[in-house]
């Protein structure tokens, strides 16, 4: 079974950066003030970003 990863809906992301602060693997960056992007290689699917995202734009699922 494939490991679950975080995925960002960049159409609703507000680029606040909360996810980058809570990610224990520093696997998320904000791309040019527009949206968050997850580095799937480093993401461990811990859901911290999903739980903390105020915009509800992050979902943890199988890719």
């Amino acid at each position: 079974m494939a490991m679950k990863k975080s995925y960002v809906d960049k159409t609703i992301c507000v680029a606040c950066g909360v996810c980058t602060k809570v990610c224990p693997k520093q696997a998320i960056i904000i791309i040019k003030g527009c949206y968050a992007k997850v580095d799937a290689e480093h993401c461990v699917g811990c859901r911290k970003c999903e739980k903390n995202c105020p915009a509800g734009c992050i979902e943890v699922r199988e890719g």
């Binding site: 003030g33 527009c34 915009a55």
Partner: peptide, 28 residues
């Protein structure tokens, strides 16, 4: 709601994200 729900509709955040989207529209 969530601790940083304000950030979702913060006028400064909204304004700066819009500026960033306009400025970086070719490479995002």
């Amino acid at each position: 709601f969530k601790p940083r729900t304000w950030c979702v509709f913060c006028p400064m955040g909204c304004m700066t994200q819009t500026i960033c989207k306009i400025k970086n529209k070719d490479d995002t």
